[in-house]
Simulated assay, not measured.
Amino acid sequence: MAQRKENIVMFPLMAQGHTIPFLALALHLENTNRYTITFVNTPSNLKKLKSSLPQNSSIHLREIPFDGIAHDLPPCTENSDSLPFHLFPNFFESTLSFKPHFRKLINGLIDEQNGHKPVCIIADMFFAWSAEIAQEYGIFNALFVGGGSFGFACFYSLWLNLPHRDSDEFLLPDFPEASRIHVTQMTKFLRLADGSDSLSVFFQKVLPQWMNADGILFNTVEELDKIGLMYFSRKLGRPVWPVGSLLLSTGSRAGAGKEYGISTELCKNWLDTKPCNSVIYVSFGSQNTIAASQMMQLAMALEACGKNFIWVVKPPLGFDMNSEFRANEWLPEGFEERIKDSGQGLVVQKWAPQVEILSHKSISAFLSHCGWNSVLEALSHRVPIIG
């Protein structure tokens, strides 16, 4: 009789930067052949995710209901990708509505297994309320942070020590190792936060609840990130484990919920025509873009430098990220035609097969927003990063 495999329940935030490391961790755990994995998310996200799983994967995808309209989000919104920045407070607040549905889901899983409980619940860093449910059922609960611990130590301290308006530079009272923080390093939300705005209320409710978890996992390695790991160990008094670096394979990365603006084959064929270490890859992540004026200047610089490039473009700041990219307004006149005719560059709208690009021998450098997934992917393929 085959030995029963323990079940691990995993529930990431509905965002590309969170789903990718969660899926990488799920596949890693599955490959140990010791666990079954129940991967929880909303219906449309699971539908997109399904194509990323290997054909022989036994990961179970479990739907949880979500009503974005009830939280003043656009119809059919089930993730943060391409969500306007002013709606992010609504999006984060909406995730609190998962709690009763998740409790019901865990109860159902236990009933299906004739009273046998999952061995562990691994929840997103913003789903710290999951610890209460795990404790109700006597299940080990870990929060998983898909990024590096130093950056999130700054994030954690900044949101719990509001406001930050007295000076342009300041020290974090509980994280002096971070040195001085300048206001230009903070997001607009942080610069305006005073503790009473909706985003402050959310973070000041959720972040202290990390102390209720049985442990915190980070997608990092201790050799690179010891200071941040020490901060959380000191701050939370809970075990803190670096479990990285977790990366999806090229095949799995492609299906993490995105439709590319260029086929992987076409992209590879173009790169194959370029000399080794001759192409600059430019991309600013799944939820970031630049101002229209910066976009125009960057286009002019890329063309003038004479280097080959692949540039992933999205509508500039202030425009709907889901809207059509208006090259005639945001790029120099005739730019796309010139670089296409000359073979100097590829302009890709919205999404590109990033891992396949970074792993190609013709790539020489990566101009990036330095999101953690992008950093790890670049490091794993030895591609220098320009931040």
Rank of each mutant, 00 (worst) to 15 (best):
I262F: 01
A2E: 15
S374L: 05
G257C: 05
M14T: 02
P12G: 05
D214Y: 07
L317R: 10
T38K: 09
P173I: 08
A327F: 06
G343M: 06
F126M: 14
A256R: 06
D67Y: 08
D320H: 04
I385N: 05
R62Q: 15
E329W: 09
M296H: 14
C120N: 08
G257Y: 08
P100I: 02
L236I: 06
K104Y: 01
G138Y: 10
S82H: 14
D72K: 15
F22Q: 10
E30N: 11
K99P: 02
L172G: 02
L87F: 12
L29S: 13
F170H: 04
L73E: 00
V221G: 03
P65N: 02
K361F: 10
E329F: 04
N322V: 00
C267T: 14
G343T: 01
E265L: 07
V119D: 06
P208A: 08
A254N: 14
F66D: 01
K307M: 12
K340S: 15
S362G: 10
F319N: 09
H164N: 11
P89K: 03
T273N: 09
E177F: 11
E377I: 03
H182K: 15
N322G: 08
L346G: 05
F66C: 02
N79S: 13
K117C: 05
F175D: 08
S167I: 03
V312Y: 04
E329V: 06
V348R: 00
V9Q: 10
S97Q: 04
G228E: 00
G147E: 11
N107H: 15
D81C: 00
L229Y: 11
I37R: 12
A123G: 12
P65G: 01
A26N: 10
V40L: 04
V40F: 08
V313E: 09
S342G: 10
N141D: 08
L73G: 03
L143F: 14
I122G: 02
H71Y: 13
M295L: 13
Q287I: 15
T38Y: 01
G345N: 07
S80A: 15
L87V: 07
M300P: 00
N141E: 12
G334P: 03
R103Q: 14
F140K: 15
S97I: 03
F232L: 10
A213F: 09
F366V: 11
W311F: 03
S44R: 12
H369M: 09
F102Q: 09
S323K: 07
L49M: 10
R326N: 09
G251P: 04
H18S: 11
Q55V: 07
